[in-house]
């Protein structure tokens, strides 16, 4: 299995290297041969060879560079997404896949894979914690957002807002989930902080790559050797529960 970590330097602001890392470790732990390839600004990218693509958040000026760099791959990326290859885009990186990005003085065209529009301003930054819900996972998603943009025009919502706000101020929905493209403004190690979401994400990945039988294999017991041992599972779940509980207290 091949994981593409797109722009590990250009789009790197909030410890998001943890996301491809945890994918790699879990897959390896399940006995699957997996490689993570990093492709940065200016590198040649053969998108067709990957099973899953991850891209994290970056400076607003770097996101613009990413758009510039990716434009030549637009058709390839569109084809890939429509064929169901899994994409996870966190933070402002998912705005790259929308139509236009407007700032106060000007605008630039983005990839236009999806129909939504992004508007950016330089007066106020929104940084806050969230609880989101999604059909994709029975348990709520926790995370933190740090943005200066609003997004309008998403129809295929990824999340329903439980705490915090969504695509724009007071919006009840956040992010986009269409085909197997997952885009959210949640930044940082989302897959590490949300172990139940990670499980379903891995299931989806395995189902696509290995077929139905692995998907039905519900044995989630992980071996007690290596990094992902039992105590790791305990830490991950406890961290999730504690933070969720604290956020719920704030919510009231």
């Amino acid at each position: 299995m091949k994981v593409l970590h797109l722009y590990p330097n250009l789009m790197n602001l909030y410890g998001e290297r943890a996301n491809p890392l945890i994918l790699y470790l879990y897959l390896k732990n399940k006995g699957i041969q997996v490689t993570v390839e990093e492709r940065d600004f200016g590198d040649e990218i053969n998108f067709k060879t990957y099973d899953v693509v991850y891209i994290g958040s970056g400076l607003e000026s770097n996101r613009k560079q990413a758009v510039k760099d990716l434009f030549k791959y637009r058709e390839e990326i569109l084809e890939l997404i429509e064929s169901g290859v899994i994409f996870l885009a966190t933070g402002n990186s998912f705005e790259i896949f929308g139509r236009n990005i407007y700032s106060e003085a000007s605008f630039y065209k983005s990839l236009g894979i999806f129909d939504f529009e992004t508007s950016e301003q330089s007066k106020k930054r929104f940084a806050f914690d969230v609880i989101f819900e999604t059909e994709f996972c029975a348990k709520p998603i926790i995370g933190s957002i740090n943005k200066c943009t609003e997004i309008h025009g998403i129809e295929d919502h990824f999340f329903k807002v439980n705490f915090g706000f969504g695509d724009f101020y007071n919006s009840e929905y956040e992010g986009i989930r269409k085909y197997n493209f997952f885009g959210t403004h949640i930044t940082g190690p989302i897959l590490v902080r949300n172990p139940y979401f990670l499980e379903n994400f891995l299931d989806l990945l395995l189902k696509r790559v290995k077929g139905e039988e692995v998907f039905n294999d519900k044995k989630r017991e992980i071996s007690n050797t290596g990094i992902l041992n039992k105590s790791f599972e305990t830490y991950v779940r406890r961290a999730y529960e504690l933070t969720l509980l604290r956020l719920k207290t704030l919510e009231v």
Binding site: A18, L21, I22, L25, V192, R193, I227, L228, N229, S231, F232, Y235, V236, R238, A239, L242, T243, R246
Partner: peptide, 23 residues
């Protein structure tokens, strides 16, 4: 502290021997 489990997760993903860590 409150975030010790998050720290433990983070340190587990490094090559630090897990036996060194207490939470």
């Amino acid at each position: 502290g409150f975030y010790c489990n998050d720290l433990a997760v983070c340190l587990s993903l490094t090559e630090i021997p897990i036996e060194k860590i207490s939470v």
